[in-house]
């Protein structure tokens, strides 16, 4: 069943056309990994999926709701889409647990102790239960990103967007974060991941999308894209990253 659909999506920054014409569908429970050279528009594409970037033309449809319809309450839709950022973007003035509880406290009519129980559960899921009361400045990069994933899950979304979640991490931290993401994928979460971790893509992705210069150049199973790329640009890119 289609969870998220983009139709002829275009995005310009001034005169610069970053996304030229992108139509794709993402199915429920599917893990889609977007790869491509820097500047190919993959992060912008991801950020259009929850309208963090205003789209120039085209549509973004989630569960039959058109996000680009001006009368649509975007906040209500975003509650259902978790997002994880390259730079974590944890709120520095709040503890790990407070970071997670922030959105549910404002947006859900649920008693505080229930929200707190949910936060504890999420911290356990990402293996950060012993840092519940720590402020972000006391956490390592990998720990921050795991708390950020827990925060993105706090509204119990059914899609998760990951924008290069391991790119700002020291190499030894990457494994912990990928492990949490793999766990989420196993639990059946619909995930769209922009990453340079080809290992993760091969192992976890149901589908790989290769983007270049604002277009989807090639897509298919990891097997097809990595082992038998059809397009020359895909081949060139893979030659560079898969030495």
């Amino acid at each position: 069943m289609t969870k998220l659909k983009t139709i002829n999506l275009k995005k310009n920054f001034g005169d610069l056309e970053v996304l030229k014409d992108i139509s794709t569908e993402i199915y429920e429970g599917e893990v889609v990994v977007i790869v491509g050279p820097s500047g190919s528009g993959k992060s912008t594409f991801l950020r259009c999926m929850n309208l963090l970037e205003e789209v120039t033309a085209g549509k973004v449809i989630i569960d039959d709701i058109d996000l680009t319809d001006p009368s649509q309450d975007i906040n209500a839709v975003r509650e259902n889409i978790g997002m994880v950022f390259q730079q974590f973007n944890l709120f520095p003035h709040l503890t790990s647990k407070e970071n997670i509880m922030m959105a549910p406290k404002y947006l859900q009519d649920v008693p505080d102790d229930e929200i707190e129980a949910r936060a504890d559960r999420l911290l356990e899921t990402v293996g950060m239960e012993d840092k519940a009361d720590a402020y972000p400045r006391a956490l390592s990069g990998g720990q921050k990103q795991r708390v950020a994933i827990a925060r993105a899950l706090a509204m119990e979304p059914d899609i998760m967007l990951f924008d290069e979640p391991t790119s700002a991490l020291d190499p030894e931290m990457v494994g912990d974060v990928l492990e949490v993401m793999q766990k989420l994928a196993k639990e059946g979460m619909t995930m769209v991941v922009v990453t340079h971790e080809m290992g993760f893509a091969k192992e976890v992705a149901d589908r790989v999308i290769f983007m270049d210069e604002g277009y989807i150049v090639e897509e298919g199973t990891p097997e097809q894209v990595f082992n038998n790329p059809q397009n020359k640009r895909t081949k060139d890119f893979l030659d560079k990253v898969l030495i």
Binding site: N50, G82, F91, A154
Partner: peptide, 12 residues
């Protein structure tokens, strides 16, 4: 990124 993180959670 702070505002983006908050908005991405659905906060007005």
């Amino acid at each position: 990124g702070q505002l983006e993180a908050a908005r991405s959670l659905g906060l007005p």
